[in-house]
């Protein structure tokens, strides 16, 4: 009995060591994809976005398709309106933004500005964002006279389509958000141009 138990426990201990040795511990780093013990329906033939399409009809193998030429997606900004292009019918830039400016728009603009603009242009629009330390050159300063005097539509157009070395941000900011960012850029400029008397009394009292 004792002998048998000794053999058995030795065998058992070896088996445990072997399993842990081969399988490893939870959370150990692995280059191999996750194990699947019962992968029923984990992988369905449907296409998920940004994956490879093993479907002969899609020659480029992309599951996310570009719009068919000449078609317009619902809600997309296709009309050549001032709201969508920042330009008047004659092609010149609009001077004032065609959306009502309120606190909500500026707040939205501030949030989007922090995400998409501040990395280069800086949180205050001084053109000294973090990327300039890494070699981004000639980043526009929003407090330059040139940009202060620029029409709202031209700033909108720069956001949407890029300018000089700056690539377009139209894919990240839809028209409403672009106008929101324009509104926030104007707010940044006003923060240096405004006069003390223009601050509402109640707010001025809280400032040092």
């Amino acid at each position: 009995m004792r002998k048998f138990l000794a053999y058995f426990l030795t065998f058992w201990a070896l088996a445990v060591v072997a399993v842990v040795g081969v399988a490893g511990l939870r959370g150990s780093t692995s280059r191999k994809p996750p194990l699947e013990f019962f992968s029923d329906m984990d992988h369905q033939p449907k296409l998920r976005p940004q994956t490879t399409a093993k479907f002969a009809g899609f020659a480029d193998g992309m599951s996310s398709r570009l719009p068919v030429p000449g078609t317009v997606a619902r809600g997309s900004a296709f009309e050549a309106s001032e709201f969508n292009t920042g330009k008047k019918a004659d092609g010149s830039f609009v001077d004032a933004m065609p959306v009502p400016v309120n606190a909500a728009l500026v707040a939205r603009g501030r949030e989007r500005f922090a995400i998409y603009c501040a990395p280069c242009h800086g949180a205050a629009g001084d053109g000294n964002g973090v990327t300039t330390k890494f070699g981004m050159a000639a980043v526009a300063k929003f407090h330059d006279e040139r940009i202060i005097k620029m029409g709202d539509g031209e700033i909108y157009n720069t956001i949407a389509n890029g300018k000089n070395l700056m690539l377009p941000y139209g894919d990240k900011l839809d028209p409403q958000d672009r106008w929101a960012v324009v509104a926030y850029v104007r707010a940044l400029q006003l923060s240096r141009l405004g006069k003390k008397e223009e601050i509402p009394d109640a707010v001025r009292a809280t400032l040092k």
Binding site: F8, T29, L35
Partner: peptide, 29 residues
């Protein structure tokens, strides 16, 4: 004794290994 040891071991092994905490965590392609 043998049944208990083996049974508990197998259960413990399944609990420890047959879970995404083992199968997925740590994947770093």
């Amino acid at each position: 004794v043998v049944g208990a040891v083996l049974g508990v071991s197998v259960l413990a092994g399944i609990t420890y290994y047959f879970t995404p905490k083992y199968t997925r965590v740590g994947y770093q392609p």
